[in-house]
Amino acid sequence: MNSPISWSDLALNLGLGVAASVVFFGVIMAVATAVKNHSIIDIGWGPGFAVVALVSFLASAGDGGDDTRRVVVLALTAVWGLRLGFHIGKRNLGHGEDPRYTRLLASRKSGSLVAFLVKQIYGLQAFLLFVVSLPVQFAMYQSAPLGVIGWIGVALWTIGFVFEAVGDWQLARFKADPANEGRIMDRGLWAWTRHPNYFGDACVWVGLFVLALGHWSGIVTVVAPIVMVKLLVSYSGKKLLEKGMRRKRGEAYEHYIATTSGFFPRPPRRRPAPSATADR
């Protein structure tokens, strides 16, 4: 962790990261406004990280970063981000605007629509994209070879990616089967955690943070997995989803909560079956 690092080049890259985040979500905002569907921002969330990773990879060429680390970080970020964007796009396109965004837009009382969108939706997303992508940007300038710590990061990323991708696939397959109408998804990874996709997402970003520990400066990027986990557990992820599921599905979902871990995977607990079931 004592290998040299080009601070001026890293600082320039951070500036480019800010610019890439702003331009990317600016384009998304323009498209979403034109088609009158602001929920497409969800599709852009994952690919946005791939864009920042690519900008950082190109900007760091020849600046002393270990090429293996640079390629691995770019590849892992791009694979995660593009898969997530494809999955959300396949799930959401053709279903109109997400009610969350419709309600948010309805809450605007006056003032510029553009200013409202920047402050309440797109500006916040650009800021979060930049902050969460800090490990990716820092890792590009670290000259130390991956070593044991780096491969631990790759292993954590792999565990997370498998949980997220398999969990999403299992849920999509479950919902596509008419025989599952009126039932809650509690099979496969969903029997071990109520949110295998969120747990996987958290592991992915912890893994990318570990990949940024080839230099002591990478420690500061711990803010990225902290912010991501906070979003997944306390804000737009688990908390919001479960609030709606409890209100909508009642006893069946309460039973699922009582028997299944809320985040970290573990074997399900045994409880009496509920008197009614509901679709997840």
Rank of each mutant, 00 (worst) to 15 (best):
M1C: 08
M1P: 07
N2H: 12
P4Q: 12
W7I: 14
D9T: 05
N13Q: 08
G15Q: 13
G17I: 02
A19Y: 13
S21R: 05
S21K: 02
V22L: 15
V23D: 10
V23H: 09
F24N: 01
G26Q: 06
T33Y: 03
V35F: 13
V35Y: 09
N37I: 08
I40P: 03
I41N: 02
G44V: 01
G48P: 02
V52I: 15
V52M: 12
A53Q: 03
A53R: 01
V55I: 14
L58M: 13
L58D: 04
S60M: 05
G62A: 13
D66M: 06
D66S: 04
R69N: 05
V71A: 12
V71D: 07
V71Q: 08
L74F: 09
L74W: 06
L74R: 02
L76W: 01
W80C: 07
R83S: 11
H87C: 00
H87A: 15
H87F: 14
G89Y: 08
K90F: 06
D98C: 09
P99F: 01
Y101E: 09
R103Q: 13
L104D: 04
A106M: 11
S107A: 14
S110Q: 15
S112N: 10
V114K: 09
A115K: 12
L117T: 02
Q120D: 00
A126G: 06
A126F: 01
F127T: 14
V131C: 07
S133H: 07
L134I: 13
P135E: 05
A139C: 00
M140I: 10
Y141A: 01
A144W: 04
A144C: 06
P145S: 11
L146K: 04
L146I: 03
V148D: 05
G153V: 04
G153M: 03
A155K: 09
W157P: 00
W157L: 04
T158L: 15
G160A: 08
V166K: 10
V166P: 04
G167E: 05
Q170C: 03
L171F: 11
A172Q: 14
A172N: 12
D177C: 12
N180K: 14
E181G: 03
D186L: 03
D186A: 15
R187H: 13
G188Q: 09
A191I: 08
W192R: 12
T193L: 03
R194F: 06
A202V: 11
W205E: 05
V206E: 01
G207M: 00
V210K: 02
L213V: 12
H215K: 04
W216P: 02
W216R: 12
S217D: 00
V220H: 11
V223M: 07
A224M: 03
P225C: 09
P225V: 04
I226G: 04
M228V: 14
K230R: 12
V233M: 12
S234L: 15
Y235H: 13
L240Y: 07
G244C: 09
R249Y: 13
E251M: 11
Y256C: 02
T260E: 02
S261C: 08
P267Q: 08
R269F: 07
R270T: 15
S275M: 10
S275N: 13
S275A: 15
S275L: 11
